[in-house]
């Protein structure tokens, strides 16, 4: 069965064809990152317009790259939540039109759950139940998964998403956008123990990153903060590499500790990661170490399936279709769950 997946929840216009829920026949991603770079983040209005322009050619290309024609598509899957509402609507409208014109079923897919499904596309031994961490620019959530479409959310961020914290810290440090890859690279030349960072842990499954972000602001601009409150002895700011490394270490430690604790509590054998921040080299390294130490088998997708893509949408869409969980032409986009 050939499933066409469509993804437009943020700043990537993507389409892909997946056969049998496992085999990626094609995956096309057109990023808008250059359009948004000058603003230091995704601008919804610009994103919508760019999606509307790209969606037709991207879908055509995905079908052609798969060596197929549109009538060979058996089911259409599309991200319907969560994301920027205007951006989601472009994909949902395109998918509904295609499904209607082809007379094929349509399946609405949750973007966050699809990030976890990405592991199933590339790892034959990825199994259930498992504990999965989704970390991206918009989301930081921990799940217990009983199957590809059966997830229980254990915890989430109480303020900033992890990727959002990377973007905001990069902005504070004047490093540019997107912040994740820039900080990852810079941190390799820094000492992660050089700058003290708050490490809040209430023992629960939730995350909080705004405290670490604020600490970076304070350490970086410290002596200039507050009118008329110049300290008697000026404290020099830390080296930017050390600050980046210390910030990253604090975020990574929080992600690893919550994930390991959830996996131990739930007694699973497998742990998974997905989402753009799962590209972070230090997170991979420390999650690898922690999993190996506790005997968990760890899965994460290759870089191009961590960041937003439509293959994961087509994959999870197929699984939902097989479970009979189809949508219809009244499918609507939802910004937050």
């Amino acid at each position: 069965m050939n499933c066409l997946g469509i993804e437009t929840s943020c700043d990537e216009t993507a389409a892909a064809v997946v056969r049998g829920g496992r085999e990626i026949l094609s995956s096309v991603v057109r990023t808008q990152v250059d359009l948004h770079r000058v603003f230091g983040g995704v601008v919804p209005e610009i994103a919508c317009r760019a999606h509307a322009e790209a969606i037709g050619p991207v879908v055509e290309r995905a079908v052609a790259d798969a060596g197929l024609k549109l009538p060979d598509i058996d089911v259409v899957a599309v991200t319907c939540q969560p994301g920027l509402i205007g951006a989601l609507l472009v994909g949902v409208s395109a998918a509904k039109s295609l499904a209607w014109a082809l007379g094929k079923p349509i399946v609405g897919v949750d973007h966050i759950e699809a990030h976890l499904y990405a592991n199933r596309l590339v790892h034959a031994d990825f199994a259930y139940p498992n504990v999965g961490l989704v970390v991206s620019g918009g989301h930081t959530s921990l799940y217990y998964s009983r199957g590809p479409a059966d997830h229980e959310r254990l915890g989430a961020t109480r303020d900033d998403a992890a990727g959002e914290a990377f973007d905001k810290v990069a902005k504070i440090l004047g490093l540019g956008y997107p912040g994740g890859p820039i900080i990852d690279k810079l941190a390799r030349q820094g000492n992660a123990k050089a700058v003290d960072m708050p490490r809040l842990d209430d023992g629960g499954p939730d995350f909080s990153f705004s405290g670490v972000k604020t600490a970076v602001l304070y350490k970086w601009k410290g002596q200039n903060v507050g009118k008329g409150r110049k300290p008697k002895v000026a404290v020099p700011p830390p080296r930017i590499e050390d600050l980046a490394a210390s910030f990253q270490e604090a975020v990574v430690d929080a992600l690893v500790s919550r994930t390991m604790r959830a996996a131990e509590t739930r007694g699973v054998a497998q742990v998974a990661m997905g989402g753009g921040v799962a590209c972070n080299s230090r997170l991979r390294e420390k999650m690898d170490e922690a999993s190996a130490k506790r005997g968990f088998k760890l899965f994460y997708p290759p870089l191009n399936l961590c960041t937003d893509n439509a293959a994961m949408i087509a994959g999870l869409g197929t699984a939902l279709f097989e479970l009979g969980r189809m949508s219809n032409l009244e499918l609507d986009a939802v910004a937050t769950r």
């Binding site: 994301g83 920027l84 937050t336």
Partner: peptide, 27 residues
């Protein structure tokens, strides 16, 4: 939580509905 990514969160069930927005990326 932070509405930076989705632009607006709505929290219901209290005395008044609370609309929480982030204007940082409006063009």
């Amino acid at each position: 939580c932070s509405p930076t990514f989705v632009m607006m969160n709505v929290y219901k069930g209290g005395r008044l509905p609370l609309y929480h927005m982030d204007a940082t990326r409006f063009a």
